[in-house]
């Protein structure tokens, strides 16, 4: 059983992420924008490394926000948001490298994608990274060598069908 968390904490974190990225988007490629992207990347890295409950934003949620909004009606698994924060980390690190290296267009696209995911999470609680996870899995295993297990199962099913007739 993995760790259980208050889903509203994730929405709060996503709202903070959205705010940071909006300001970043309006100030890049200036130093403030680049600094904000670096801060956000560090927050994502903390989530991935230590867990979504051990970030500074999560501490603010626990000590300031939750006492005002009461206990949650239900808890959620911590693994999906942690995975999504990893996706966010990839985008923000890409953006950081792009802006520092002068590839501004790449940087804007990367920040935009991270912001889309954060806004959808903050507004309707959607975990975009989690949905992409299955799609990537589907794509990756279209290569023939990864189809071994289904093929074996198919063979077994055929065998069973034969033995029943």
């Amino acid at each position: 059983m993995s760790q259980q968390i208050d889903p509203r904490g994730q929405q709060f974190a996503a709202a903070v992420t959205s705010l940071v990225l909006v300001i970043a988007l309006l100030t890049v490629p200036g130093p403030l924008g680049i600094a904000l992207i670096a801060v956000q990347a560090a927050l994502f890295a903390t989530s991935v490394g230590l867990g979504v409950q051990r970030t500074p934003v999560a501490t603010v949620f626990r000590s300031v926000v939750r006492p005002r909004i009461g206990p949650p009606t239900h808890l959620e698994d911590a693994a999906p948001p942690r995975f999504a924060q990893g996706v966010g980390l990839v985008f923000t690190v890409t953006a950081l490298a792009a802006f520092l290296g002068g590839a501004d267009l790449v940087g804007f696209v990367a920040v935009a994608l991270a912001l889309v995911a954060a806004l959808l999470n903050a507004s309707i609680g959607l975990c975009l990274g989690c949905e992409v996870y299955l799609l990537l899995h589907r794509l990756r295993s279209t290569t023939p060598d990864k189809n071994q297990i289904p093929a074996r199962q198919q063979a077994r099913a055929t065998q069973e069908a034969r033995s029943t007739t």
Partner: peptide, 10 residues
């Protein structure tokens, strides 16, 4: 600015 356009699109 580019950032404002990107924000609008997002």
């Amino acid at each position: 600015t580019t950032g404002q356009w990107v924000l609008l699109a997002v």
